[in-house]
Simulated scan of single mutants.
Amino acid sequence: MSEEETPNRCRIVLIAPPAGAGDAARIEAALSGGDIASLILPDYGADEAAFQDYAERLTPLAQARGIAVIIAGEPRTAARVQADGIHVEGSKSELADAVRKYQDRMVVGCGGAKTRDDALELGETQPDYIFFGRFGYDNKPEPHPRNLTLGGWWSQMISVPCIVLAGTDIRSVQAVAETGAEFVALGAAVFADGADPARMVTGANMLLDLHAPAFEDR
């Protein structure tokens, strides 16, 4: 989390793009754009060695700004790069195992829920957050309606924080914030070809400052 003043409203979780030319510069530019709660690094199917190299390059960039880094891949990679947490996409038993093994020393979050029943099953393991959406599937201007619906329901009913994936239009952060979700995930909206990552993050924060409901004390 940022060491600066933390906004009392929905905050940004940045989803890193797949490894590629200039990825560190693009990430660093995005991180300079304003408040970001955390950076999630998905492995996107890369082999363990390649993903570890990617994570080793990017993790210090975020942590130097007080931004937590979450590894969505092999937990061993998170330990090796000294990340702040892991993201689990798997069954309830896999998540429960990760919570048992790692939650005493790092954040353990999860994704993969497509229904309320899925979400409640995963929530029984008491992860640190639940993510509604799929990495790389923010391919339309607006957030997926199912993710908005699940995020709104979850935020009203469950104390575990949730992250909802926004769309490719930076203005879609407003729709996510209006659900009551604690965090809005931005990926393609920030890192699309031709986008200015710093400007996109700055713009998203301005929209959240203007339109996101303030949280009551939690």
Rank of each mutant, 00 (worst) to 15 (best):
G85Q: 04
S38H: 01
D217A: 13
A175I: 00
L165A: 14
C110D: 06
A181T: 08
I67F: 07
Y44Q: 05
A16I: 00
Q63M: 14
A49H: 12
T202M: 08
L210Q: 15
D196P: 13
G34M: 02
D23A: 09
E89K: 09
G136W: 07
A64L: 10
S172T: 02
A119C: 06
I36P: 05
V99F: 02
A64N: 14
C162V: 15
D43V: 07
P60H: 10
E89D: 13
P42Q: 04
S155K: 11
R100A: 12
D104W: 09
E48A: 11
Y102H: 15
T202L: 07
G109I: 02
I12M: 02
D104R: 14
C162T: 15
S2H: 12
P42S: 03
P60R: 13
N8M: 08
V184E: 03
T179R: 02
L61H: 11
D117F: 05
L210H: 11
A21N: 13
E94V: 07
R105S: 13
G151Q: 06
L165I: 09
R76L: 11
I158Y: 09
A50S: 15
G85N: 07
A49Y: 09
A192H: 11
A113D: 06
I86A: 08
A68D: 15
S93D: 12
E28M: 04
T202Y: 06
E182D: 14
R9P: 07
T168F: 01
A25F: 00
P18L: 00
R218H: 13
P7Q: 01
T6P: 00
D53L: 13
D23P: 00
A50V: 10
E74C: 13
R65E: 10
A79N: 09
L207Y: 10
G136A: 04
A55P: 10
S155E: 09
L95E: 03
D104I: 00
W153R: 07
V184P: 10
L95A: 06
D97R: 14
G90W: 07
P161K: 05
A188N: 15
A96L: 02
T149F: 07
L165S: 14
E74W: 06
G45Y: 12
E74K: 12
R100M: 03
A175N: 02
C110I: 05
E216P: 00
A189M: 08
F135L: 15
L120S: 03
S38C: 10
L210T: 15
V164S: 05
